[in-house]
Nucleic acid binder design. Structure first.
Lengths: 195, 195, 195, 195
DNA sequence: TATGAATGAGTGTTCATTCAT
DNA sequence: AATGAATGAACACTCATTCAT
């Protein structure tokens, strides 16, 4: 693996454990056995490193979301499920990066933050578009605001980075199923109605 | 208002805007027109101030949750709604504190963090207990894991601090209604079933 | 002497010897037996220290020049001599500051440099005004450009900071006399003309 | 133009604009589109580059001064004028080099500085010798100290690098004339005497 | 000839904290 | 109850220089 990739890897590990502000460049280079000069040979600043980590994460998400959106063989409900799965999987597989991504955005400088925010906004609006399409096409109820539902889904999924442990008592697939079942049919007992 | 209260107030404002690590004691005392010595007369350390902010927030939440739990006049579904309302209201009314609470926990020292985490855990388990009671008493479906549902609800509500703007296009009551409607009945179109 | 004054004094000594860029804050505080924190308690930056040194120097010059200009008991020729004397004396008495002043202006930030340049310009134009008055009032030749003569006088005097040593073979009063004699009557032998 | 010459040219430009200490080797090589290794192939150190710039400048001055001194067809007064013209022209034509020469000598290492100082001293003593010859041969007054006069002339001319702008309101020839007229005949109005 | 990677010592600056008054 | 002076350890970052290729 290249020196630059090594720096990224180690710094994600340290940023996740100690936090971005609390991790010094010294910490990063010591973990790699190189010197500060080496770090600054590959990165212009500490902030630029954080920016690269953010872009790697959000660009991957957007790429995969795009693939889901383009699929013609599945309906909007399935697309929604795929996106929920995407978000949860990403947290399971790249938990460290996910936690850095969600926690450390405030440490980007204004320009980087604007770029990242724009991409996150795109991801959100793509999801909202699926829900709106599902409403138009009769898959989803039309009496709920699509924008608020979108935030609800994102909150539900993204919050997982705070607690979800792939080695814990629930698998990520169970998580996806529970989330989808709740989102689609709700938690209220229905036989009350059918009785 | 006492000097100490003033310090807390100003520091919440600054911690929310700039972040805890990025706010210096100097920033805090300058905003108040006093000197650093004054700060250290009232607080042993910067971390202790953060701890107090956290405890104020979580203790208030726990107190109100306790009041909801104790009510004998409403069923579990209504208690769930009251807790969703509590979480959303708290973000609307004490947005600054909420954001500091959710973002800056990593800056507590291990002991403070343990205390706060225990209280957050209590809040979560209290919510989970309501859901489990609702399941037992026939209000909620029994085929969903209560623990995962609890995380889903908390994620949905707490995530709001990331985007919810009380002056924006949605009121907090609309938010509560959309969240509850989704949680209880789901977003799938039901007339398919009834046909 | 106050700590701040001490810092100024020591740093003038070091800036003169080693140069501003080549003198570190560490050098300054070590020479005083204090720590870097102390330096930054009194100064916002290294540049601000340099700015204060510059302003002290030029403000003193301007103040004394003003006193000369206001005198009603002497003519323009005498005022010119007093200003030459002022410049040479200042170099003799505050040689270190003079050298820092003339050499290190490029290290001021743009705003500070603008302030200092404006004051130097004022000093120069004050001198030029005396020469122009002397021309109008018949003391000086009118066939020489006052602006160029002013630069010539300033160059002659200010250059002394490069070589003049008060302990050397010429006193500052001899310097003033030679400069004035040359400026007023020139170095060409006159008896050629009168013969 | 050779790579080495290019480096010299660009670095004079940068040293003049930003200062020697404030210009990094990186700045120099970036301006040329080469890498640091290239620089160190042609120069042993940053200081050696500065030394070469200094030597080029002073050697050129000394060479031209030598030519003036050797002329048998003109008297000392004319030789003085030629030297004044040489100094002013040099500033007009090689302003950048001139400014680097006058400002950055302190950044030479002791040996280089000694070499350059010796050459500057030679230039000054050569000028002083002309003045002393002029005194002996009846061209100049004998009641002024030749050493101090020499410093006065050098100051007058060299100071020009601080302000003289060839595109400004005065030409270099005007400057030479004004300086020579002042130096030879002084600025005092003579008709007082002749009346 | 020229490069690219790496070093190591240094820079200006920040800041939580202490403490005599 | 509050101040002002001082500390010391840390921080992000720079840069002249080296050297294998």
């Amino acid at each position: 693996m290249s020196v630059k990739q090594n720096i990224v890897e180690q710094s994600i590990r340290l940023f996740e454990t100690k936090g971005f502000s609390e991790t010094s460049i010294q910490d990063v280079v010591e973990a790699l056995g190189v010197t500060k000069g080496t770090f600054y040979y590959y990165f212009q600043s500490k902030e630029q490193l954080l920016k690269e980590i953010h872009l790697m994460y959000i660009d991957e998400l957007l790429k995969r979301q795009e693939q889901i959106i383009r699929r013609a063989d599945i309906n909007n409900k399935s697309k929604l499920m795929e996106i929920v799965r995407l978000l949860v999987n990403q947290i399971r597989e790249n938990g460290r990066s996910a936690r850095v991504f969600f926690r450390e955005m405030r440490n980007l400088n204004p320009e980087s933050a604007a770029t990242v925010k724009q991409k996150r906004r795109t991801f959100r609006l793509n999801l909202q578009a699926i829900i709106e399409a599902g409403m138009r096409e009769g898959e989803f109820r039309q009496d709920l605001r699509a924008d608020l539902i979108t935030f609800a889904i994102l909150g539900m999924c993204n919050w997982s980075y705070n607690w979800f442990n792939p080695e814990g008592p629930a698998t990520d697939e169970q998580l996806v199923e529970t989330y989808m079942e709740t989102l689609l049919h709700g938690m209220e007992r229905l036989n009350k109605l059918t009785k």
